[in-house]
Amino acid sequence: MEIEAKTHTLRDGGSLTIRSAIADDAPATLELLRSVVEEGAYTVREPSEFDLTEAGERECIEEDREAAGNLCLVATTGGEVVGMVRASAETYRRTRHFADLDSLWVHAVHRRRGVAGTLLAALVAWARSHPEIEKLGLYVFSTNGGAVRLYETHGFAVEGRYPRDIKFGDGSYADTVAMGLIVKERPAGSNA
């Protein structure tokens, strides 16, 4: 699925454009993901396990563009991809109202400028206007307090916690925090 490109002003006065990803963004989105994985603090995958290819990323972007319940957005400044967010909904009738926020990444040098919040707001707005999506959900490490606060600021609530779900190389643990956001109230007459 696609959204129209829109330009935003960041906290520091910089300009940021949010737009749907295209296949030609694959090298940049792959490099962004690689940079976040190499930080070692925010992903399940460790740097030695990074095996994504440009061809695979191109394929993911194309699938996101074609699937009605998927969205992949990039944030650009000065023509450079500095952030991305990806969400996907199942095709099954019982679960297609729910979209999983698969990833939200921002290059380290562009953090704390409002890039992540702008991407997240665009994703939430898309979900609210989507004819079928009623809820967004995500998982985040308990050690990533900044991300938990960002999601809470945008209306997400903690729905569960998986203790000691993540084990880092130094032997320390993190919980996985499940968060969700209802973007549309349940239809009249439903049982839930």
Rank of each mutant, 00 (worst) to 15 (best):
Y151R: 02
A99E: 02
I61T: 02
L181I: 04
L138T: 11
L30G: 02
D175M: 09
Y139S: 11
T176F: 11
E62F: 13
G14W: 06
A178L: 08
V183D: 00
E80K: 10
Y162P: 10
R93D: 12
H154R: 07
G189M: 03
A28P: 03
R86S: 13
R96D: 08
Y173V: 00
E134L: 12
M179H: 07
F50H: 13
G114E: 04
V37K: 03
T77R: 06
G155D: 03
R11T: 09
G14V: 15
I182L: 08
G114T: 01
G146W: 14
A41D: 15
D51L: 09
V106K: 00
D12G: 11
R149M: 01
A122K: 01
Y92E: 15
P187Q: 11
Y139G: 13
A108C: 05
G146L: 05
N70C: 13
D24P: 12
Y151A: 05
E46N: 15
A87Y: 00
R111S: 00
V74P: 06
A99T: 01
E152N: 04
V183K: 11
G78E: 09
F98H: 14
V44H: 07
V36W: 03
L33A: 10
E57I: 06
A68Q: 12
A127K: 04
G56D: 09
A23Y: 12
L104R: 01
E80D: 10
A41V: 10
A108V: 12
G180F: 07
L104N: 02
A26G: 11
C72N: 02
E132R: 15
N191H: 07
G13K: 06
T76N: 08
C72V: 13
G189E: 01
R58I: 01
M1T: 12
V44I: 14
V158Q: 14
P187C: 06
R113P: 06
E46R: 14
S142E: 02
L71F: 05
V158L: 10
S142R: 06
G83Q: 00
I166D: 04
A21Q: 05
W105E: 06
W126P: 04
R111G: 05
T91P: 13
T118N: 01
L119F: 13
G78R: 07
G83H: 01
A157G: 09
R45E: 15
R113A: 02
M179V: 09
V109W: 03
G56S: 13
R96A: 00
H107F: 14
T95H: 08
G78P: 05
V74Q: 11
A147F: 10
D51A: 15
G180M: 03
A75Q: 01
F168L: 12
A68V: 12
G137M: 10
R186C: 05
R111N: 04
G146R: 06
G40H: 07
A192M: 03
G145R: 15
S190M: 05
P131N: 12
S103W: 02
V106M: 01
